[in-house]
Write a protein that binds this DNA or RNA. Structure first.
Lengths: 239, 239
DNA sequence: CGGGACGTTGACGGTCGTCAAAATTAGTGG
DNA sequence: CCACTAATTTTGACGACCGTCAACGTCCCG
């Protein structure tokens, strides 16, 4: 059997609560199973889609870790997000029928391919799915507002602290440790996301280690003082 | 008649092509007219909605100019966008049924109130409307990617040049001049949006004036050298 | 075992933030 | 309509933060 077309029902997927609406009856679940046509495997370093490619589907991440990034005409690029299991990517492609960013796997990954035409058709039948899609898009808008706040008003230490807290919180929601994580991205990719140069990211990690807030061994990070990170993000909130 | 409940049909609104899907038959247009319940006037300085308020409706701007902003817990705030006629605001509220930002009118404004429950109901009937809503949300996501690029990788001059070009382009699409505009926001609000302090915004304007690229008289701006602004945004693209 | 990608650290400089003061404008009430 | 006050804008001086450039160290994969 072609590994690209393995079929596993959404109704029995353990990420169901992350990417699908709750409270559907079995008939509705069957329709969603049918809509999610195929799985696709993406090797580490490979692109799920690239800027300019025709948009046909949204992708729900089953396993693995992605970054999305855009490039300006003069070659600068900006990482716009890091996505993990249960999150949906490809929303940028809807408006103009082609993707406007690159989505690259940072570790071997598998995604569920959801043809957008099918999503829209099914949304007209199942209002819970319709509302779920709207929520996913709204959530992405709200997330980006938070990134704008970070990029627009925070200093390097605040940015990195906020980044670590956000990552570990999302990982914890998926059953991983609250205090330990493995970074799937390079210092340069972190820097691109946070609007910092890779040297500044490295220095800021070193500062946190000196202060006893985290332990860092390459990409393995152990958070020793979550509260200290919170205070760094929100210095005035103590007053 | 209560001015808050004046009714003017979408089908005869001259902003139709900006906020509504094209190619609807008259029956579909009637349904949309019915969904857009009321208009609402918002005085300059007043809020259309505020962070924490219950989300019920999206708003299409008929006249006027808005800013949206979020506040962090420690009092910093970040302008997340400036919106003008034909644009839709309130999308942030969908995900958690309450708004997560403030929308404040920067000049006297009038909006069309579109109850979101009605939008969803009608979207299930009219697939062109459904797709249009998806596009509006996707467009906002793509716009925010651009802001992230700006905040993450551009210097002050590049940010302000990109800001002016974006504003004048959107105004031109609404029939205004390609080279002249009136800023409806303060230097501080521009700075907040661009991740700069108001003094830096002011200094950068002065620099552009020295260089003969723009004329600035308070909030009135005349662009003398559009190409120079483009080169500032994309310095390397010339090579 | 070797080469290349990745990460760390140091020295230095530039950009932009901070603080301050003055100028100009806008808004308010008489 | 005008006077007065508050808000906004401009400009300067100075310094902090972070970017740049460079060298070195470490890890991973073939």
């Amino acid at each position: 059997m072609n590994p690209q077309t393995i079929k596993v029902a959404c109704s029995s997927c353990n990420l169901r609560e992350l990417c699908m609406p709750m409270g559907l009856n079995s008939g509705e679940l069957d329709m969603i199973d049918e809509m999610v046509g195929v799985r696709r495997k993406v090797k580490r370093g490979a692109a799920l889609f690239r800027n300019g490619e025709t948009f046909t589907s949204l992708f729900a991440i089953r396993t693995g870790f992605f970054k999305t990034s855009i490039a300006s005409e003069d070659g600068r690029d900006q990482v716009t997000g890091f996505q993990m299991a249960g999150e949906v990517i490809g929303l940028d492609g809807i408006v103009n029928d082609h993707h406007t960013c690159d989505a690259v796997a940072l570790e071997d990954a598998e995604v569920c391919v959801m043809p957008f035409a099918d999503i829209e058709a099914l949304s007209r039948e199942v209002s819970a799915l319709q509302h779920h899609i709207h929520k996913i898009m709204s959530r992405e808008i709200v997330r980006e507002h938070g990134v704008m706040l970070l990029l627009g008003s925070m200093r390097a230490e605040e940015r990195l602290a906020a980044f670590l807290l956000n990552l570990v919180q999302r990982l914890h929601a998926r059953g991983f440790s609250q205090s330990e994580l493995i970074l799937r991205m390079t210092r340069e990719e972190i820097g691109s996301y946070l609007g910092l140069k890779l040297e500044t990211v490295s220095r800021t990690f070193s500062k946190f280690v000196e202060d006893g807030i985290v332990e860092v061994k390459q990409r393995h990070v152990r958070i020793l003082e979550t509260e200290a990170l919170r205070r760094i993000v929100n210095p005035q909130a103590l007053l």
